Every structure is written in structure tokens, then in C-alpha cells.
Simulated scan of single mutants.
Amino acid sequence: MIMVTIVVFSHLRWDFVFQRPQHLLTRLARHYRIVIVEEPLHDAAGTARLERSEPLPNVTVCRPRTPLDLPGFHDDQIALVAPLLADLLPPGEMPIAWFYTPMALPLLQELTPRLVVYDCMDELASFKKAPRQLLQRESALLNLADLVFAGGPSLYEAKRHRHPNVHCFPSSVDVEHFAQAQGAVASHPDQEHIPGPRLGFYGVIDERVDLALVAALADDHPDWQLVLVGPVVKITEDELPRRPNIHYLGQRDYADLPRFLAGWDVCLMPFAINEATRFISPTKVL
């Protein structure tokens, strides 16, 4: 049986934080061939090219490299990336086109899709450094899409009047994976030097995290140890509060997260209340 291909356009790197796209696509790969087109990377020394890797069976990650130092699926990047997709699929194949970012929409003309899916996992226009064309391009994608998923109830309410086939599809919890934290698994050795009680958070550290709250918590309770696991994105290291009882352990493999959890007394979710968090639906509350 020939597998149908899903071509995925994503603003998130496959080897970044393991989250909704990776969870869904690894499961879809049991039934479909998955081809992921990531945002271009800058390569001043080379010509435009497409690097391919296969991190899992039926999953191919395509990473464009171009001489342009421009962010994301910028219009000038699109002009260089589009020709690279000419031989992405066998001639005549009609894939499912799956979008995580509307900014890649111009690349749809390189395909003859049987179905267009928009998996809206975040309100990207509310994020820091969002492209100015994002709202306009999302409107165009909503006009073209056959199927729209909203990553949580608030996103669903924001999108359901804009498309006739919108479905609330919240993220969930990898129960088997995280149940390890309640079993016999030992705490991660990289935090064993930190005394208790440990209050932990794992996730992307960006404008959605209330850093002032983290600092105040550390100041009010100097005997509490705050452990933050995750990459720092879109903010500078200088913006991070520094205290003897705040510990930044950086991005870690998804496989390691249960071991960090196993060593925490309390789990934190210190999200700020701002435009970037207005539509989020964090699985950490489940």
C-alpha cells in the first residue's frame, strides 16, 4: 500500500523542544509519510540548498539553507526556497499540506494538495517579533484551508467564526512518559547539587514567563530553590533574574524531563498575563 504524504510547513525546528508538532507527527508517521519543511537557515558561504535528515521512520526533515540573513519564511526567502521544493515529491503526487505557520503559505503553489490543514497551536501574531504580514497571511490560509485545528478552547473561540470547519483539538499529556516521574526513576543528576525544597518549571523561557514573579518568589523565599529547565528564546540572558536560589539548567532532551520532575517538590507554571499568553492552553495544567 502506497502511503499518502503529509508536507508540513513549520516555524519550529524538529530538534527544538519536543512539543505538539513532534507528538502529532510521530504518531501520524505510522500511517503517512511525513515531510517537514522548516524555516530557512542563514549560510553566507553557500548557495541555496535543502538539507534532509530522517530522525524517525517515515519522517523526513527538510532544512533550507540560503545566503539571506532574513528571519523565518520572509518573502525574499520564499523566492529561494520555492525552487528547492521542485523535487520534494514524485511527479504527480498529491500530498496533504499541513501548516503550523501561515507565513509559509506562498510555498503551497509548489504543491498540488489533496487537502490543506491549518493546525493553529498558538496565536503567533501575539508573540514577540511576530512578522507584520502574519495576520494577513493567516486570513488567506483560512480562506484556502479545508480543515482547521485549534490547539485549545480559547483559540477555538477565536477561530471558529472564521472558518466553517474548525475543530477544538487541545494538546494532551504523554501519560506513559511522564508517569516515570512517579515511579522508581531517580532524580536527574544535574540537579542533585541543588538542595530542597525544589520548585521546578520546564518549557520555553520567553516573553510568556513572568520573570518578575520568579524573581519575587526567589526573594520572598530564599530557602526555596527554583529550577528552570528550557531554552531562552526571544529575550536576552540579561533579562533573566539572577539569584543564588534560581537555577537555569538550559534545554534538555524530552527523555530527561521525567527525571527532573522526579526531583521536584512543587511544579510551577509562572506564565505572565499578557497578549502572548491570552490564547495559550498549557498541558502542564492537565
Rank of each mutant, 00 (worst) to 15 (best):
P67K: 15
P90E: 12
A186K: 12
D87Q: 15
P91R: 08
V117T: 08
E275G: 13
T277L: 03
S171H: 06
A158Y: 14
L108C: 04
D146F: 11
L226E: 04
F73G: 04
N143L: 13
V185T: 13
L199W: 13
G46K: 11
G196R: 12
V232K: 12
G263H: 01
P153L: 01
L147T: 02
A48W: 13
E54C: 14
D219C: 06
R198H: 14
H23P: 02
G203A: 02
P197M: 03
V166K: 05
Q22H: 08
L155Q: 11
P57H: 13
L240G: 12
F149K: 03
P55A: 03
G263P: 07
L240S: 10
M269Y: 10
S154M: 06
L115Y: 12
N165P: 00
F271D: 10
V204L: 14
D174G: 12
V285Q: 13
L141D: 03
L217V: 06
L28T: 01
D146C: 02
H188R: 11
W264C: 07
V173G: 05
V148M: 04
H247G: 13
I34D: 00
G200H: 04
R114Q: 15
I6P: 02
L268A: 07
Q180D: 06
A125H: 11
S139W: 09
L84A: 11
L199H: 13
T101S: 11
V59Q: 00
D75W: 05
R13L: 06
Y32N: 01
D15N: 05
L70T: 09
P164W: 09
G92M: 08
D43N: 04
M3H: 04
H42C: 04
L257K: 01
A45G: 15
E192Q: 15
P83V: 14
L50P: 04
F169V: 12
L141M: 05
P258C: 08
N143S: 15
P258M: 11
L155M: 08
V173R: 12
G250V: 09
L108N: 03
D265P: 14
R13C: 01
V17Y: 08
E93Y: 04
L24R: 14
E138T: 04
A272P: 03
Q19C: 06
D265Q: 15
L249G: 02
A158M: 13
A184C: 15
K159A: 02
V166E: 09
A218I: 06
A145V: 07
D43M: 07
P131V: 09
H247T: 11
L286V: 08
L28K: 11
E93Q: 13
S171Q: 08
I36S: 01
V81M: 02
Q133T: 04
A179L: 09
D190L: 10
D265N: 14
P244E: 10
T66G: 09
I246L: 09
F18G: 00
A145G: 11
L286E: 11
P195R: 07
L24V: 15
G152W: 00
G230S: 06
A215K: 15
V35L: 08
G46N: 09
A140Q: 15
A181I: 10
P153Y: 03
E239A: 09
H11W: 01
L85Q: 07
F279M: 12
Y254M: 07
P197A: 07
H42M: 03
E51P: 00
L286K: 12
A276Y: 01
I2T: 13
E38V: 07
A158D: 09
P40I: 00
L28W: 09
K129V: 00
A86Y: 10
T66A: 05
F279P: 00
